[in-house]
Amino acid sequence: MNKLAKDPINVVVAGVGGQGNVMVTLVLGNTLVHDGYFVTIGETYGASQRGGSVMSHLKISAEKQYSPLIPEGQADIVLGMEPVETLRVLKSYGNQNVVTVVNPRPIHAVDFTGSGAGYPDMRELLAQITGMSAKTYIVEATGEAQKLGNSMLANMILIGALIQTGLVTISREAIEKTIVDMFPKAVKENIAALSKGRELAAKQ
């Protein structure tokens, strides 16, 4: 039985180089492949460590292997690790039905800094994001991750929130297996972060 709300499900993961964008898609991708799905991931790279915008496309299908790029306006889910990047992706890939999960923690760009303009106003930025999404989950992932002891756990919190949207059904066992495979030294923390993400999204 196809447990996807739609086939394929198109997910765009938006962030900034160094945030762990590739890691997020790998956790999701490995889990889904173990669950028997076809997964295709395309990433913009080169920028991966160098402060540029990084975006990964993740296509999930129960039927076939899709191409690594999502056409414009065809995202079903935007997983935003950074607010400006989230808005940027919505502009290109959003549509009337898109569901957005966003971490409202800014990463300043040298260009914002260089021009002296500073980072856009957070409230207005989030209003734009919400206005362009059918449903928006604002998940304070970085803050919560710091409470859990490591800001890198923000990514796992976001994945938890994504699972909570119900658009992709991922079994608990499958994702926990991925965590054990990928982060053998930090299984407990990652599982805690995952639950935290689900909990935060469930409230919204």
């Binding site: 160098r50 402060g51 808005l87 760009a109 734009q128």
Partner: peptide, 9 residues
Amino acid sequence: QYVMDRLLT
């Protein structure tokens, strides 16, 4: 200005 480019650095 909300989606200003992030140049690589």
